[in-house]
Nucleic acid binder design. Structure first.
Lengths: 338, 338
DNA sequence: TTTTCCAACCAAATCGTTTTCAAATTTGAA
DNA sequence: TTCAAATTTGAAAACGATTTGGTTGGAAAA
């Protein structure tokens, strides 16, 4: 059913019908009500593509998805979905071929030019992230999930990674640990730098010298956790505590500890960051895992919310949210054994 | 840059330019080459919304995402992305508010009517799935990831869940196990029925009577695995083997076994289904996990491929793929102890 | 009564392409 | 050289909405 026909059936002009449905004021209440009612009854819905062509609005938010397929991703999107379901906005997932730099910039540029999205969410930003510069230059509204030091105004939402790791590390120090290992994410992303900083500061403020051997970084896989923990624990002067970065690496660390006949929460303390997954909870691990916690899903919901505000004109300069991270102590952290 | 201007710069008509770019035959090679080259140089790209309005194509494939935010989802999408990156097609994720039945049907109906997608992928179908009937009725191309018994022609791709579980269970029986527990997915979906069938058939063909107490079902969480395994193993006549359904439940099962001072691969054998995640591999578990394996990512890639074929006119009746599942034996399955 | 104003409605232009139909040009055979 | 056929090109009409810039009729003001 097209606007033309629908209007004819109502004995009105397309103009009036369009106005009635879009909530413009210059149409009488009684007419508006009738139009709305009949639209439902006759099943008229404006053709999205026509609306988009005319208004220039895309009705979608873009998210670029890397090849990695991180498990956080689904949770974040589920969170976004929670907020967007009420709006008439959907999520456009744009596949990214290679993490090749030029390709990536090209992808963003084309995405913007194609006018398929009203705004973009940028994930895992780097301290000096050219994507941000580009999007700013092109005038596309965007929200950064994470942070960047780049000297370009932009909206962002991030969690306090630095504080989280500092707290976690400090807590371990309070328990008497001095050899504390740290598993970080892939170098390059700002969050990895922040975590590194939190870790270093905690050590420094308590006068503990940093041992570079105790730091690893890479994708947050179970395997990374296992390999690194295992190799450290087999060494002469093993760490007594490990900051494990993510739930998956924590699983690997647990496994490594057990494989050497040791126990988490006794010979080795472990803290990780928990993004709060419905299918794998820190509380249920054995022993239960002490963790810094921040819901990925909630972040998704809030990001969607902020993006909508951005699209409807709010200044990016006003949008900066730093979420505190809670540290939840469970059985995996205990006083150092002597 | 609009088509109008661009054509003018080239001294050609919009018609010719459009044809040159869309690869129509009635344009000379030399002109086509010049147009293509200049398009790149001057940065002309057709406005997607105009193209869509005119052609009626949306350039996107729809995927409805439930609130659950399953961890499979990201892998499947990453797989789709792998195939779609070459095409000019993207993935539209449509958030679903409640799993309320009426809402769900309404959502699909509106999605179709809105013409935002060229095709839809339906996940976790039920034996008699109304979504399939609806999409068929509305004439929207769609591919079912999984299977349905519904009497409506439709394209599908599924893995052989029945065969996988039958093989896994038979293998356990071969090893001398007779009390074999089974953790299944949420009842309702066809794949859960298939798995149930495979399990029952394996038992029956070897003359083992089924004990309903040994069957559980629910979301594939770590917690379900733990709770169920633990409660069974504490009982008087505990199972000696468990078919664990997914990697996450397998984690829970492992934990339960350990928590009782038992060992996987000795007192209790475990098999699970592995969707092949980059961050958590069966091979790396301790002991390594025997698993039926089928790559979720590969399924996503293939589904994207098939959907593209569907969109370009191939009959749904020709598209039925049943993927075999391999059973990979590792340390978690061993002869029953007596 | 006449003028002014306002609420309510509408015709037609527009968004940026694709595609139909027709015209112009080139080619090749006679 | 000529003319029909084949090849290239273009003008203009869609696609289905929104929106600008009017009308219209009746109530309020003069």
């Amino acid at each position: 059913m097209k606007l033309r026909e629908f209007a004819k059936q109502l004995g009105l002009s397309p103009t009036t019908v369009s106005r009635a449905l879009s909530g413009y004021p210059e149409v009488s209440e009684v007419t508006r009500a009738r139009v709305a009612e009949e639209a439902v009854r006759l099943g008229y819905r404006p053709n999205v593509n026509a609306v988009r062509l005319k208004t220039g609005r895309a009705g979608a938010i873009g998210v670029v998805m890397g090849r990695a397929g991180e498990f956080h991703f689904a949770e974040f999107m589920a969170g976004m979905a929670e907020r967007l379901v009420a709006e008439d906005t959907d999520i456009l997932v744009i596949p990214m071929a290679d993490p090749d730099h030029n390709d990536e910039m090209q992808l963003y540029r084309r995405l913007v030019e194609s006018q398929r999205v009203d705004a973009i969410i940028v994930h895992s930003p780097r301290p000096n992230d050219e994507r941000i510069a580009l999007l700013h230059k092109l005038g596309m509204p965007f929200l950064v999930h994470g942070r960047s030091d780049i000297d370009v105004p932009h909206a962002w939402l991030d969690i306090d990674n630095e504080g989280a790791v500092r707290r976690a590390t400090s807590h371990l120090i309070d328990l008497g640990h001095t050899r504390i290992a740290m598993i970080n994410g892939r170098p390059g992303a700002t969050y990895a730098l922040h975590r590194d900083k939190g870790y270093r500061e905690a050590l420094q403020s308590r006068g503990i010298e940093l041992d570079p051997q105790l730091i690893a970084s890479g994708n947050f896989t179970d395997e990374l956790g296992f390999r690194f923990a295992r190799s450290l624990l087999e060494q002469a002067n093993p760490p007594t505590a490990i900051v494990a970065g993510s739930m998956m690496t924590a699983l690997g660390v647990y496994r490594a500890v057990r494989s050497l006949g040791l126990q988490v929460g006794r010979e080795v303390s472990v803290v990780a960051h928990d993004d709060v997954f419905p299918y794998l909870t820190a509380d249920n691990m054995a022993p239960s895992l002490s963790a810094t916690r921040s819901s990925m899903r909630a972040a998704g919901t809030r990001c969607a919310d902020l993006v909508l505000q951005l699209v409807s004109g709010r200044s990016p300069l006003e949008i900066h949210e730093l979420w505190p991270v809670e540290l939840i102590l469970r059985e995996s952290t205990a006083p150092v054994q002597r």
